[in-house]
Nucleic acid binder design. Structure first.
Lengths: 151, 151
DNA sequence: TATTGTTATACTCTATAACTATA
DNA sequence: TATAGTTATAGAGTATAACAATA
């Protein structure tokens, strides 16, 4: 009988991870939504707001707000779409791009720190076990909510 | 070089876990705050709102709202504090209590499902590795934000 | 007629400030 | 004077609905 349940450990880790993310973003004047927009644009290149909304699972209206805020902060701008005059392309500014690059570095650094102390074998075993847990969790979710099919 | 980083795996698991929790609570007309209040009262017995606020890390004013909502939903009620006429004791109703008991069962069931397929040895190794990762994450956080001391 | 983005509005979660009734 | 809780107000995040310009 494990005194501490696996699920409780995972929930705790989840809480710590999330608090850390939020603290870090807040220090940059960002939040999850604005950062998600930048992340998408950084990885896909200039993007239409409609596509950003779909990728994030939020309303197009909300993306308008998020992009307004990024522009206000000097992290992005809007360009007219060259082929569709209804649409707009969101691009990162130089500051926006370097911020995303810095976040990538921080991400990699944290990843390295978390794996420290684990041998390659142990790391592989941990990753495999985590993959299994995630798959079982997803299976539970799918079993409980059989509505939303894959898109 | 691991193609998928450990941190990314953890972030993904975090997202899935959280979405699952929210979906489950929403199906019961609950949210994180209301559930947290019930959880505290379920585990500590009748509690003053002030103490609930401290335990949750939110304002006393917000606890007033949360308790109002629980009462509205027939899940809790307020009793006058027997020794301090300024204060109030929050108690769970029968429905509130049985809901908490049901959630405990669901929690245990999910924990079992997540561990399925792992031998006792593998489970112990996973838990140990997770503990290490969480400790290293906490150490990173403490190193980055040396302000808020322990209370 | 369908689609992109925006103006207008509203809902949820949470906070701060001022106040009432005790202690 | 300090503390428990509440009335009043505000701010962040996100949604729905109606509408403009364009496809």
């Amino acid at each position: 009988m494990s005194r501490v349940q696996l699920l409780d450990q995972l929930l705790h880790l989840t809480a710590v991870l999330q608090a850390d993310q939020e603290r870090e973003l807040a220090a940059l004047g960002l939040n999850a939504g604005r950062t998600h927009v930048m992340w998408i644009v950084h990885h896909s290149g200039p993007a239409m707001q409609r596509d950003i909304a779909t990728a994030m699972g939020v309303t197009p209206r909300h993306v308008t707000t998020l992009v307004d805020e990024l522009i206000e902060a000097g992290l992005a701008w809007r360009q007219p779409h060259p082929e569709d005059r209804r649409a707009v392309l969101v691009e990162l500014s130089e500051r926006g791009t370097s911020l995303m690059e810095q976040m990538s570095l921080d991400h990699d650094r944290l990843d390295t720190a978390l794996s420290a102390g684990l041998s390659a074998t142990e790391l592989a075993a941990l990753q495999a076990a985590l993959g299994g847990v995630t798959a079982r969790l997803q299976a539970e979710i799918d079993a409980a909510a059989p509505e939303e099919k894959s898109a």
